[in-house]
Design a binder for these strands. Structure first.
Lengths: 254, 254
DNA sequence: CGGTGTCTTGAATACCATCAAGTCTTGTGG
DNA sequence: CCACAAGACTTGATGGTATTCAAGACACCG
């Protein structure tokens, strides 16, 4: 596999100015914003700004590999990404989809090795912070520590839910729950439009398959069935939930 | 369901003295030990010992429920427990088995609600620390913070592995990997005897089923097949791995 | 224009669940 | 101590869900 890294800071500088953090849909819940705004006391007493760098990766590009060592922690600014574990026979399991404002994994604050592949789904902009600095800042400020602990808890809760979904639910339930989980997270970021619920949906069916432990073929069949039942509509990389009540019923069959 | 809580500190006092922490098989990797030994500065400057209480629960008893609120964090001293998510149709998913020295979940340092059921598998002794105190201590001492971060990372890594196992592996692989994962953790605690590998194995087949997303019936069939192939032996609540190489091959089929 | 990636559909198959019956063990109360 | 009930495990028969295999339609891109 042709896994060229996508650190192209120089080219970025030549492109039209990227949106500022204030336009980030995750502005209010963003660790990145908090860290950027934070000022900390350096060892010699001078207040310092945290160092950061902005990067981008085109859709489908690998952002970092499982065995790479990094002294920086990435946070997604824009676009969708996925953290993925690959098996030797080529099958893949997506651990989580990363949306704007998400820290890739809170565990990265403590260890340099991500243990999973990070892949861009859409074009992605992301920011990296030096691990030691970021950790220092987050732990030295009670309000930031609180914010960190919430994202830690949320990360853990989503892992637990995924375990239950993969262990104990049918294909229909898994897929419906995946979509509703995304709706919830997108809603917090104000990336979902009103009634009926509609939002940008860049996932390919193979992404859904890799996230739900199914095959792309079966995902296709389930989604077709959802459409035939009038539950959802998918077109132009956009998803509409036509029957929220019926759809939630599928997701909560047990 | 008859889920009486098992906090019987008074009765405990009447029983023969429990083994000391020094005899805990997880002594060296134990957060509990570190916390117990730690001394911290109180608001008025006096050094304080952390408060803790010791409890016990008999096998099969619920230790705490998903909706309970606790201002304490439990750490297992002795015996096996499981954290479990229950679905409304009665099916269960075990998120993790808890062994001596394990903190139930690092997320409990930040939130009072466990989100999952905690159940004793064998008779269990456990210790509870006040959340605010424990957090304070762990975060104020760099060596303890390091220890905490390691157990956080390990917890995350095990969650990720479970997700992959449930999403992408067959029944044979899941069961073999569950057992080998336990061997690894028990070995660190010096709870595995030499060659051939043998150890106390208190899990019922329904525990294995709940942990691997299978049915007890199918677990029985797979284990029988493992025995017939001469890979393992189970008797008297004790498990022996007769053919480590063959068994690991099953666990790493992809 | 061929190539690649994406999605769909049908047929055959594998894996695991469900159902059912029976053995054996463990615990409990009379 | 025995009788009985409940839990744990096994085994076989049957069925359903999801996989695998295969072929074709369609869009997009260099």
């Amino acid at each position: 596999m042709h896994a060229q890294l996508a650190v192209k800071t120089i080219q970025d500088a030549l492109r039209p100015a990227p949106p500022t953090c204030g336009q980030c849909p995750a502005y209010d819940l963003n660790l990145c914003r908090a860290a950027s705004e934070a000022v900390w006391a350096s060892p010699n007493g001078t207040p310092l700004k945290i160092q950061q760098a902005e990067h981008s990766a085109p859709a489908r590009r690998t952002i970092c590999r499982e065995q790479d060592l990094h002294d920086t922690v990435p946070i997604i600014c824009n676009g969708w990404a996925a953290s993925i574990i690959m098996l030797s026979d080529g099958s893949r399991q997506i651990l989580s989809f990363l949306l704007p404002g998400d820290i890739v994994s809170t565990a990265l604050l403590f260890e340099p090795r991500p243990h999973c592949l990070l892949e861009a789904i859409t074009d992605v902009r992301y920011r990296t912070f030096r691990r030691t600095e970021l950790r220092e800042i987050l732990f030295s400020n009670p309000e930031l520590l609180d914010r960190l602990s919430r994202s830690w808890i949320e990360e853990k809760a989503r892992d637990d839910q995924l375990i239950v979904d993969l262990g104990r639910r049918t294909a229909d339930e898994r897929i419906a729950r995946l979509i509703l989980g995304l709706v919830e997270r997108l809603t917090k970021r104000e990336m979902v439009h009103g009634d009926p619920l509609e939002f940008e949906f860049p996932l390919r069916q193979h992404h859904i398959a890799d996230a739900t432990g199914l095959t792309p073929v079966h995902v296709s069949k389930v989604l077709s069935e959802f459409r035939r039942s009038g539950l959802i509509k998918i077109s132009e990389r956009s998803l509409t939930i036509l029957d929220p009540i019926g759809f939630r019923r599928i997701a909560n069959m047990r």
